[in-house]
Design a protein around this nucleic acid. Structure first.
Lengths: 222, 222
DNA sequence: TAGATTGTTAATCGATTAACAATC
DNA sequence: TAGATTGTTAATCGATTAACAATC
């Protein structure tokens, strides 16, 4: 029956951009076809996983041949929704917000920065890549008048929660959240978190674990 | 037998910083004790998972009482290796590198920025938070003379791979990689990736999926 | 046609959840 | 002591891997 598709797991979705990246590289190197086995060796995953992952979305390969790199690249791009353009606003134009505003590659992928907002009067009025930073007081009006797809939250923890709620109220459906908080949102709103301090702590954990393992090894050698 | 501990899964490790964050908030709000059930409700996970996760590292709770917030917070901090200090260098001091260099919270957690490097002659000689940006030519010497724990890679894709290899050769054991590549490193070197474009693509995918679901709902309503 | 490799089903593995005895 | 809640074992669920028939 239609519409009865099994839900794709987050684990699979998170792997798609990586496939996309590898296929892009193959394409740059003029590789026209690739088998799941060879791709698996390059990526350090199992061929089985690649085939399973792809077959969640359709049969992109051909028996006895493998996958056409360009075709598969295009198809995964479509699956990731990269054909679309998204109107993006950045809220909090500190160092990180500026970094993201300046990152040209996002524009290439269809993420168009259409508004920048900050509370800091020193920043308001300045421009980044031709876009003027507005006072956050104008945020509500701006969001309501422009069809914004994604709001990037790069502001201090204390403000992020409130602004996040407001944005949802004003109709935003996508949040790219860099603040170290978990936003509570209705289920039709998508939040993608980038928790840098979490990432750094994970690194810290692993470095420590590594040290412990080395000590154990040293003992064994004695 | 000693040293026969079961390996902690990445899934568990990745959850630790989140526990740490929630416990920190509880502490700020003067909550002294919490049960796995209550924490689970706040975090949107199962109480069972919390207890399982924590018991990988030890019994931090007390039957009939729950967990002492401050104690648990401290212990998870220890597990995450936050008692240590790490010497950190940032390679590539563009917008993102600058953002990270300016992020004071990292210092608080023991991640001390001790060197900044870039190829861009315009940046070399400038200072961020009292640290002068050096030409990347001095990187090798600097790494060999100072015991650097973590190198942050915030440079263009094309350079990242080579520099990453070099750093490993020069003895770096921890890499915090922001470049959209997968570094190949020996197994005693830890790489923690922050792939911003992957994250954005995941958001894009989910926004698209959301749209599709809404269309299906609309159909059903008719 | 023979060889290669997919798409897909079945088997395995690991992670999450449930249940409950231990115990504060 | 009775009630609450942990620590931990057992059951379930889901994701990964293996296997192989289908087919290019």
């Amino acid at each position: 029956m239609m519409g009865e598709e099994k839900k794709i797991s987050v684990a699979v979705i998170k792997r798609l951009p990586r496939y996309f990246r590898y296929l892009g590289e193959l394409l740059e190197n003029d590789v026209t076809r690739i088998s799941s086995r060879e791709l698996s060796e390059r990526m350090g995953v199992t061929a089985s996983q690649i085939r399973q992952d792809l077959n969640n979305f359709g049969g992109f390969g051909q028996q006895g041949y493998g996958y056409n790199v360009e075709y598969l690249y295009t198809e995964i791009g479509k699956i990731l929704g990269l054909g679309n353009t998204y109107k993006v606003i950045i809220i909090g134009v500190g160092n990180l917000g500026q970094a993201l505003a300046n990152y040209a590659n996002f524009e290439k992928r269809g993420f168009l920065i259409t508004g920048l907002f900050d509370v800091n009067p020193r920043l308001v009025g300045m421009s980044i890549r031709g876009i003027e930073i507005q006072d956050i007081d104008y945020l509500e009006q701006f969001v309501k008048e422009n069809e914004i797809d994604i709001a990037v939250l790069t502001l201090p923890k204390v403000k992020a929660s409130k602004i996040g709620q407001d944005l949802v109220k004003w109709g935003i459906k996508g949040l790219w959240n860099f603040s170290p908080i978990d936003l509570k949102v209705p289920k039709d709103v998508i939040v993608e978190n980038v928790h840098l301090s979490d990432s750094l702590m994970t690194l810290s954990y692993k470095l420590n674990e590594q040290k412990v393992l080395q000590k154990q090894d040293n003992k064994k050698e004695k």
